[in-house]
Structure formats: C-alpha cells, structure tokens
C-alpha cells in the first residue's frame, strides 16, 4: 500500500484529506487515505466494481459522513458534481436549459424569485463551452447518452467550480467518444484551472489525461494516492488493472509519465 501526498505546497489545496477513513455505520471499508487536490489537477479515481469508489466519492461530496480522519475544503470552495445519468429521474419533465440552470443554484439562492442576468450569462457560457446551446430547448430524456453527459457537464461548469467530481461520465460511450470526452475535460481543467476528480474504470484514456491516481480496492484493503507513475508501480494496482491498462502501464513505467514531476 502506498499513501502519499502530492508535492505542490505553493498552491492551496481545494481538497485535503488526512488519514480519511470511509465506510458505513462507523465501519471503514478502506484503509485510511491521505492526499491533497490542488487547482488544475486531474485525478482519476480507479477501482473495480465494489471497490469502495462510490463510498469515497460520496464522502468527498459530503453525502456520507467520514468514519475517521479529516477531510478539509476551504469554506468558499465551489464544488460541482456530475452524477451518472442513470441516477437522474427520467420522469421529471426537464429541458436542457432547466438542467443547466440548476448549476447556478447554491445554498439558499433558490429563494430569489428569478434567475439574474449574471446567472443567465453563466448558463449561456456553459452551454456554449460544451457545445449544447442548440439543445437548450430539447427535452433531456430524449437526448443521446453522450449529449446527456455534455449537458450535465454544462450544469457543472455553470457553477464555476473550483473542484469538479465526475462519476463515470463516459460509461455509456464508445472508445472514441470516451477519449474525446476525457480530452475535453482535461482541456477545460487546464483552461479554467478547475481541479477534477474523475471516476472511471475505463482506464487507458483517463490515465493518459490524468496527473494523479486515487486507487481503491476494498477487497484487498489496498489504497494508493499519488502521481500516476508511482501508483502504476503499486503491485495491487498492477495486478488489478494489468488487463485493462495493458501496454499503457508498461510504457508509462518504462518511459516515465509526462505529468510526474
């Protein structure tokens, strides 16, 4: 097991954990994790089904209480979450615009009777940035899976997030679409300086774009957090994903990963 913090002390972390223990009913499902996420970094949260990815993600999002340790975010950090499309209710009659408009909501902002001009501008920019402006009046449920993901990304961007968490955003896409989507996310985080945590078990494309990996394995009680190269060298990670990452792991370990400082 390796558990390391990434070395970039000059920028303030948007998320820090210290021996963070996640689980249910006070029972941890993973060993403690220590890591820090800084602006502009792209982390891939990897693990097999049932490995504890969702538990860790829900704890980071504040939807589950931590079992132990600390999880720190600066109080003013704007956080956005891109859920899996299947988790959204298909019977709610939502247009694309209605969904992206949710991105500007925060705290008690819904008490204002109308959306302000500034908020409308942010919604419009998010639609443009994700190429979904032509879909604005369409019904969400009638879109393709790829279009739905872009709309949800627009909703996340409308909140001008400093930390963006994406839960398997490419699960319904083919390989080409997946690579395009991940590259798009990587471009956005570079352009906007947003820190991104991307949950994925389609690893090759995600790892190519990422700086860091959070690897979790509840079955073997393994966790690893750090730069791509050091996590790729972790024996449990190697054993778990040798088939999925294939030559990518070997190439990266041989040549050194471009993001590893």
């Amino acid at each position: 097991m390796i558990t390391r913090t990434n070395p970039l002390p000059q920028t303030k972390a948007v998320l820090s954990t210290e021996s963070l223990s996640v689980g249910y009913g006070g029972v941890p499902v993973l060993p403690p994790l220590t890591f820090s996420v800084r602006p502009g970094e792209l982390w891939v949260l990897a693990g097999r089904n049932g490995s504890g990815k969702s538990t860790l993600l829900r704890t980071i999002l504040g939807l589950l209480p931590a079992v132990g340790g600390t999880l720190t975010r600066p109080p003013s950090t704007s956080i956005a979450y891109l859920p899996q499309v299947q988790s959204l209710d298909p019977i709610v009659p939502m247009r694309v615009w209605d969904i992206v408009a949710e991105g500007v909501e925060s705290g008690w902002s819904f008490l204002k009777p109308w959306i302000t001009a500034d908020q409308k501008q942010r919604i419009s920019e998010a639609l443009t940035r994700t190429g979904t402006e032509s879909l604005a009046k369409r019904s969400f449920v009638e879109l393709s899976e790829g279009q739905k993901q872009r709309v949800l990304l627009a909703r996340a961007l409308a909140s001008s997030p400093e930390l963006l968490l994406l839960d398997e955003p490419t699960s319904a896409m083919d390989l080409k679409a997946e690579e395009e989507a991940i590259n798009h996310i990587a471009d956005l985080r570079r352009e906007l300086g947003t820190a991104v945590i991307l949950v994925s078990h389609h690893l090759p494309a995600a790892i190519k774009a990422a700086d860091h990996i959070l690897f979790v394995d509840a079955e073997h009680q393994g966790v690893a957090a750090g730069g791509v190269r050091e996590v790729l060298a972790d024996p449990i990670f190697h054993r778990q994903f040798a088939g999925l990452t294939g030559d990518l792991c070997v190439d990266m370990l041989k040549d050194g990963h471009r993001h590893d400082a």
Partner: peptide
C-alpha cells in the same frame, strides 16, 4: 427552483448546499 432541483437530483442539490 429548490423543490424541483431536490426532486430531480437530490444528491446534486445537496452537493450544491441546498
């Protein structure tokens, strides 16, 4: 707006601090 957001995506609404 809050009621609709919380109905469509309860987790998303909670993450946004509603």
């Amino acid at each position: 707006r809050g009621l609709i957001f919380a109905s469509f995506d309860p987790d998303g609404a909670k993450v946004r601090g509603l």
